[in-house]
Design a protein around this nucleic acid. Structure first.
Lengths: 219, 219, 219, 219
DNA sequence: AATGAATGAGTCTTCATTCAT
DNA sequence: GATGAATGAAGACTCATTCAT
């Protein structure tokens, strides 16, 4: 119901020689420390200005140690993305709202998305930035967006078939459009500091979704 | 009716010593050649990989000549933006569609915007990229987006007052949201090559706008 | 009686092709303007940071015009030195004090020197600086110092022969030493801002000269 | 008893980020090699023409290694100064001459100073040059000169109180003047090659000091 | 003579990556 | 595995000097 066109997360394609996957406890500790360090430095300095030395320093490691686990900045960024992905996926518990009517599901999804976005604003901004800098992450983000939109398109098509949504709309384009609307506004508000209050944001977006699809009012 | 949250274009505040404004014909020619060269190189290599030497070379000038007119990459980029701005503004002819009803105006605006976006896709992608790399251009883009949204918000408020649009919507948030939707989709389609046909794109977006605002059908 | 080991003043030895000596009035005007400009810029920015463009600009001339009259910075500096030399030489009138006894002559000379130094402090500092940067001016300054010391040595020798000065002193070394003392202190006070009042400075230096030579008290 | 207005040596105030202080033996070796290299290159080419690459090369290091320890030429020069300072301070042995009468102390001090100056002539010339090029070192040198003069002024005042020196002299100005005389002459002889023999130089300067202060003859 | 734009050699400086300890 | 020093390729930028107009 909500875009996730932001975060890429698997290692890119034509890797060079893979770096060590740590076997020892110590190795695992160092690798994790590096990823945490990367997160701090990336959030503080942005992707471009993040220097390997700084990441290592933030991790309490020597700059040389970086290369024990990663080939370059891109690779540790991918690892960070992967980690964040897991963090954000585990609490799938959001499904608690037993909402069954479309409107309720959409509203809950939007709310959850915006909350998560606000909580991780710096990180989301970072992902956005990197997608504009690095081909691989751009591609990845697009793929995610497409997968996500296809899921939503299916839902929209279902609503249309049941006469619950405007039949004139192209489901896939609509799915892309509405996702884009939400994610983009989230970006403007939580990354660029466009001053819009949370509730106003959620309410307006919910109404816009409902209107746009011409959803029937909740029972 | 349509977002323009893309192109920044004035020189920032605390600049260093301004470079020469050409006094001779030759100077003007060179400066323009540099801007054209910058455009080529930026579009080809992206902002980050564009080297001053390459821009100069593309302009048929020595690398030192660059500094006769610009202090750095950021500054020539600003000049490029400014130039493009003017180019895109002159054809004010869009006003031709004597459309008077809101629906018609919106549809024309969206179509024009998407056409212009497609025509200048590389440039729009470039502007988008730079806004994610450079603070100044990010700020500028936001300001433009806000100004644009405020104009649209006024229009929406007007419609609401005349009972022609959903009174539950916050006009400003709505304006931001719908603009974001259009511009973001344009980006995905024309910069990221998301495969959506032009007409399908326009039609869907138009319907979404109309639905979202709950516009009364055209007379 | 006083050191002048500061200001060099004729064009250096192995010149390149000599630049035009202006024939037209206009040419003379431009050349002078350039020298004045050089003076301003040199005094403001120091020798090293003085750029040809700035000198030309300060002269109200185009940077290319510089090369009509001078080959480089060194050459215009030499011209400036020459000019200043003339300025400082013309008012030879200082000889007014009909002082005839050695003590009186020395005291007047010291006073005159320090006054002139104070008046032209920036320039003196500049000359000093350049002598440490440019071989030619270093040599020139040394030659001047030697010539000056030789004159003074002759005077000292005269005093010794007449039993009016300590016969144990080597006249030439003494001349150098006492000149160095005065010029160096002038430099420290008027260029480096060592806080010593003029009268105190003159009086002490005069006494030191007199003592050092063991001059007989004035009649 | 003798000026030391030459060598500056501490890092200035608002420095940029300090560079690494070597932790490993190898690091210490490299840093020292760089300082030695700097010394060679500075003495050979002068401060202005010394290029970072040359210094690094002279140290047997890559040009990038320079920046591991120093931010720029000024900073390595400061380090060099500091090092020389220490070298020149250790032989505190000068105190050996059990000279107790003022005349003897002064004579020994002058002799020591001139000897040290001769031994380190190139370096002294270098320091002199840099003080005329770089504000920080100029200031530093002045401060040293003042401190030194104040010590000497105290001595002179003591002599005056005991009736052993001319009471008409201002002690501080006198201290500055006599120091200036010695250091300046040393410069002229050992840096500018003014041909004066060592003994003649020492003897004359000693006599001049004694005369200038009107010291009573040694017992 | 004057103009001011064009040129490009010469340095500085950064930082990803390697490697000896 | 960890360390941190060494490396050097890459690019930015300056400014003296030339030259077409």
């Amino acid at each position: 119901m909500v875009p996730e066109e932001t975060a890429p997360g698997h290692t890119a394609d034509g890797e060079r020689q893979a770096r060590t996957t740590p076997r020892s406890k110590r190795g695992i500790r160092t690798r994790n420390a590096l990823i945490q360090g990367a997160r701090e430095v990336f959030e503080r300095d942005g992707y471009l200005d993040a220097r390997i030395v700084d990441i290592s320093k933030a991790a309490g490691a020597a700059s040389g140690s970086f290369y024990t686990y990663f080939n370059d900045k891109e690779e540790i960024f991918a690892a960070l993305v992967e980690q964040v992905q897991e963090e954000m996926l585990h609490p799938h518990l959001r499904e608690r709202t037993g909402a069954t009517d479309p409107r309720g599901v959409i509203e809950a999804a939007n709310r959850d998305y915006l909350q998560a976005y606000e909580r991780n604003a710096r990180l989301m901004g970072l992902f956005e930035q990197v997608a504009h800098i690095n081909e691989n992450f751009a591609r990845l983000r697009l793929e995610r967006g497409v997968a996500f939109a296809e899921r939503n398109a299916k839902m929209i098509r279902g609503l249309q078939e049941r006469g619950q949504a405007d039949p004139d709309l192209d489901p896939l384009v609509t799915a892309h459009a509405l996702s884009a609307m939400v994610s983009r506004l989230a970006y403007m508000v939580y990354v660029c500091d466009l001053p819009i209050a949370f509730d106003q944001l959620v309410d307006t977006l919910n109404t816009l979704w409902a209107n746009a699809l011409r959803l029937k009012p909740s029972a």
